[in-house]
Simulated scan of single mutants.
Amino acid sequence: MTTMQLPIISMCSVDGCSYNHDHDCHAGAITVTDGTSCGTFVSNGAHDAGVAAHGQVGACHRSDCIHNDKLECRAASVNIGAGDDPADCLTFATA
């Protein structure tokens, strides 16, 4: 899978993240860590952080997710928002 094939983050509702610009993630690629937390979340210290393109999912540590294949996300797109942590993968699902 090349970076052009990584799933995009279709929406991020975490207003306190430096990569979030008008509910659009601009991190080059995020990592979903244990507990479905967005490991790339950075509190609003760096204004307008990230790249001009939509953020993508670079890695997923949740091997029990139905979208996970060899620690790579295969979902068409993901949503990030508040869950157990301030920034969680809301697309996470188990079989």
Results as ranks from 00 to 15, higher is better:
66 I>K: 13
88 D>M: 07
7 P>Q: 01
92 F>D: 01
46 A>W: 05
87 A>G: 11
74 R>A: 07
72 E>I: 09
16 G>P: 00
7 P>C: 02
31 T>P: 04
68 N>E: 10
11 M>P: 03
56 Q>W: 00
51 V>W: 05
58 G>C: 02
35 G>M: 07
5 Q>V: 09
64 D>G: 13
95 A>C: 03
58 G>Q: 04
38 C>Q: 07
70 K>F: 09
17 C>T: 05
57 V>A: 07
14 V>S: 06
87 A>P: 13
66 I>G: 03
34 D>W: 02
74 R>D: 03
51 V>I: 14
81 G>R: 05
46 A>H: 13
36 T>W: 06
6 L>W: 14
18 S>K: 01
27 A>Y: 03
26 H>Y: 05
71 L>M: 14
57 V>P: 15
37 S>Y: 01
74 R>W: 04
87 A>E: 03
7 P>V: 03
4 M>T: 15
66 I>V: 15
15 D>K: 08
51 V>T: 12
39 G>P: 12
95 A>L: 05
79 N>G: 04
37 S>C: 08
4 M>N: 12
25 C>A: 04
16 G>F: 00
44 N>Q: 11
2 T>N: 11
54 H>T: 10
20 N>L: 01
87 A>T: 09
31 T>D: 14
73 C>T: 10
90 L>K: 15
8 I>S: 08
46 A>L: 13
27 A>R: 03
27 A>T: 03
14 V>L: 01
10 S>W: 00
24 D>Y: 02
79 N>T: 13
84 D>P: 07
26 H>A: 02
93 A>R: 11
66 I>L: 14
26 H>D: 03
73 C>A: 06
65 C>W: 05
44 N>H: 12
31 T>E: 12
83 G>L: 05
67 H>V: 05
91 T>V: 07
84 D>K: 09
80 I>G: 08
74 R>F: 06
21 H>P: 00
73 C>S: 11
63 S>E: 01
83 G>E: 08
16 G>N: 07
31 T>M: 11
65 C>V: 10
87 A>R: 04
53 A>C: 06
38 C>H: 09
95 A>G: 12
25 C>K: 00
70 K>R: 12
54 H>I: 01
65 C>P: 11
16 G>I: 00
71 L>G: 09
76 A>R: 15
38 C>G: 13
56 Q>H: 15
56 Q>M: 08
71 L>T: 14
25 C>G: 05
47 H>A: 06
85 D>N: 15
66 I>H: 05
92 F>H: 14
57 V>H: 05
25 C>H: 02
42 V>Q: 11
11 M>R: 15
67 H>R: 11
10 S>K: 13
87 A>N: 10
62 R>D: 01
56 Q>L: 10
50 G>I: 04
10 S>C: 02
19 Y>L: 04
22 D>T: 10
52 A>S: 14
62 R>S: 08
42 V>W: 06
61 H>Y: 12
90 L>I: 12
63 S>Q: 08
2 T>Q: 09
26 H>T: 02
70 K>A: 15
59 A>C: 04
69 D>M: 02
76 A>F: 08
46 A>I: 15
6 L>F: 15
28 G>K: 10
22 D>Y: 08
90 L>E: 00
93 A>L: 07
26 H>G: 08
91 T>K: 09
24 D>W: 01
86 P>Y: 00
49 A>D: 14
8 I>Y: 00
83 G>V: 04
48 D>R: 13
46 A>P: 05
